[in-house]
């Protein structure tokens, strides 16, 4: 059974160009930048983030739960997805996993990174049950 735990990070909604810069920046390996939308990013593992634009919304985010997956776990999760996963890595995919709105940060296991399955906290129980 997958243990989905709260992901603590920073949610930023800002102009796409500002987030492009954030996305393109070199981060330490402990930082994960999840681009939910052109104007919406969720950054995990970064202490401080500077963002240009005075109207940017920057909020501490703890509304998502997630689980870093082994290759085996990822293969198991993939069995519950009825849409094709892209081959590109790393990439964020968003859609139904076992009928639950979820996201997966797909990385290349060749580089030793793990993929991250995440969903909004109110869905956590059902996602866990359905993937069991």
């Amino acid at each position: 059974m997958l243990a989905l735990e709260t992901l603590h990070g920073t949610r930023i909604v800002a102009a796409p160009e500002a987030l492009d810069a954030l996305d393109a920046a070199t981060w330490s390996t402990s930082v994960t930048v999840l681009r939910f939308a052109p104007d919406d990013v969720f950054v995990l593992g970064a202490e401080t983030i500077s963002i240009s634009g005075e109207y940017a919304i920057v909020e501490a985010e703890s509304g998502f739960v997630g689980c870093w997956l082994t290759d085996e776990q990822l293969a198991h999760v993939a069995e519950h997805i009825d849409w094709p996963l892209p081959v590109e890595r790393p990439v964020l995919v968003q859609g139904f996993v076992a009928g639950v709105p979820a996201k997966i940060w797909l990385t290349s296991s060749a580089t030793g990174e793990r993929s991250l399955l995440l969903c909004a906290a109110p869905y956590a129980c059902e996602l866990t049950e359905r993937l069991a």
Partner: peptide, 12 residues
């Protein structure tokens, strides 16, 4: 219009 939106319905 130039307005950013963050939905916190499930975050808060």
């Amino acid at each position: 219009l130039r307005v950013h939106v963050l939905d916190q319905t499930m975050s808060l």
